[in-house]
Simulated assay, not measured.
Amino acid sequence: MFTAQRTSRIPAGARTSVRMAVVALGALAVAALGAAPASAVTGSKAHGDDYAYVDGRYVYVYDGERDGNGVYAEYDLVNGQTGNRLWDGTGHDNVGNSTWASVDVKRFRVCEDHKGCSSWKS
């Protein structure tokens, strides 16, 4: 019976280098997958009659109280940028204010001047 022998055109030293390169590329792929960004947040938070709403990159804030206090949404982004603020500077007018963040929002809360903030939503 005829048995085929496996032969390679790549010299033995070069095969070892190729194997090491494949292992290194695999390790890089695993590391890249492990460094995936945090998830975007969706939902709303209230502080009295004031509220903020976020859906991915979209941010909306609304002042629902006629008390003279400013209202803003404070939000952090998935790229690590923190302390972003969106103000509803027009007061209680049934309109609110909105913007699109540069990347997805990681967490947010609604705050009212002189009154404090809601808890964070992430």
Rank of each mutant, 00 (worst) to 15 (best):
G80D: 03
V78G: 11
V95K: 10
Y72A: 09
R107E: 07
R85H: 07
A31H: 10
R19W: 12
D67W: 06
C111F: 02
Y62A: 08
H114I: 09
G96I: 04
V95R: 09
G34K: 12
N84T: 01
K115G: 03
D55C: 08
C111I: 02
A35M: 13
R19K: 15
W100T: 10
P37M: 07
D67L: 06
A36C: 10
H114T: 04
A27M: 13
L33K: 03
V78S: 05
H92R: 00
H47T: 02
V105K: 04
S98N: 10
D55G: 00
A46Y: 07
V41T: 07
G91H: 01
K121F: 14
E74K: 05
G83F: 10
S44L: 10
V59Q: 01
N69Q: 07
A4V: 15
V105I: 06
S39G: 11
A27K: 11
V95P: 07
G96E: 02
S119P: 05
N79E: 04
V78D: 09
H47L: 02
D104I: 10
G64L: 05
F2C: 15
T99K: 08
D67R: 03
G34R: 02
D49L: 02
T7Q: 14
W120V: 08
S39E: 14
S98F: 08
A29N: 09
A46E: 04
D88T: 02
C117M: 09
L25P: 12
R109W: 01
P37Q: 10
S44V: 11
G89M: 04
D76E: 08
C117R: 00
A40Y: 09
M1Y: 15
G34I: 08
I10T: 03
D104F: 11
V110K: 01
D50F: 04
D63N: 04
D50L: 01
H47C: 01
A46V: 04
D55M: 11
V61C: 09
V95F: 12
A29H: 14
L28M: 15
Y53T: 13
G89I: 09
A73D: 01
G64W: 00
S8A: 06
G13L: 12
S44D: 06
A46F: 04
A21Y: 12
V95M: 07
D50H: 08
W87R: 00
Y58D: 13
S44M: 05
K45R: 12
D55E: 09
L77Q: 00
F108C: 05
T3Y: 15
G34Y: 05
A73L: 02
Q5F: 14
K121A: 13
